[in-house]
């Protein structure tokens, strides 16, 4: 047991580090991420600008650090809202069945017919860009799948002998759900959501890359890549660095999810 939790401790510390970077970004950033300085544009590395400057003379490192905010806050926000939304609907549909179940399953069928990315793209397109709309779009796209997983889990649990027994002995529904359903479903879904956080971060960067997520001048990694594409041959670092940040973030969350899963239930796969 002790040996197994070592990777988990390390990975959660790294996640914590990442999150605190985002939280304390304004104080960590060496320069003002918004301050343009055309005289200093497209500079290489220096003491004042450790990762150089972009085409408007803004500090790349500062923008990277501030960029962590958008990605992480949005991704974690999506996680929280999706968790609540899918739990409520999934448990209702799975336990009560009836109309709630029917609506959820039909919604699943239809939403599954459109690839996630395209679906998010179109919703953002219809709503208009911006962080807020992107946030809404990603939630709309992702919650249904989780709700369906919960619904199936709850259905299985409902059939189990101990829930049947509780029902027979007249335990009120609310209590059964609280006692026997939620404690089982909740950690599993949280785990799935954590594992899915990496792909949320990717989705955010993809939408922003297309100019549909974050609006300028707010720093965001995907958009930084998009802005730097004109300078690919002269200043490739401008493009490499934010991409590496995205990869790193996704990797960290994937790894965290993996170690957490191993620690909770080594058999689950």
């Amino acid at each position: 047991m002790m040996k197994k939790s070592v990777p988990l401790i390390i990975s959660s510390m790294i996640v914590l580090l990442l999150v605190s970077t985002a939280v304390f970004a304004p104080w960590l950033a060496p320069n003002d991420p918004y301050a343009t300085n055309m005289a200093m544009k497209l500079q290489g590395m220096s003491a004042a600008y450790p990762f150089g400057t972009d085409h408007l003379g803004r500090c790349v490192l500062s923008r990277l650090i501030m960029g962590a905010r958008v990605s992480l806050f949005t991704a974690l926000g999506v996680l929280a809202v999706t968790l609540v939304l899918s739990m409520v609907v999934g448990v209702a549909a799975g336990y009560l069945g009836g109309i709630a179940d029917l609506v959820l399953m039909r919604a699943c069928d239809i939403l599954m017919a459109i690839p996630h990315f395209i679906f998010a793209l179109v919703i953002v397109g219809a709503l208009g860009g911006g962080v807020w709309n992107m946030f809404i779009a990603i939630i709309i796209v992702s919650w249904v799948g989780y709700a369906r997983i919960i619904r199936n889990m709850v259905r299985g649990l409902k059939e189990s002998t101990y829930v049947q027994y509780a029902k027979m002995t007249g335990v009120p529904t609310v209590k059964i759900v609280k006692r026997h359903i939620l404690p089982f479903v909740f950690p599993q879904i949280l785990l799935l959501l954590l594992i899915g956080t990496g792909s949320t971060v990717l989705l955010i960067s993809e939408l922003s890359f297309l100019g549909l997520g974050v609006t300028a001048p707010m720093p965001e990694w995907g958009m930084m890549i998009s802005e730097s594409k004109m300078y690919l041959s002269s200043n490739p670092m401008l493009m490499f660095v934010p991409g590496a940040m995205i990869s790193l973030t996704v990797l960290i969350f994937d790894w965290f999810g993996d170690t957490l899963r191993d620690a909770i239930d080594p058999k689950m796969k």
Partner: peptide
Amino acid sequence: ASMPSFWL
């Protein structure tokens, strides 16, 4: 899985 395709 971790690399954004556009960056790649």
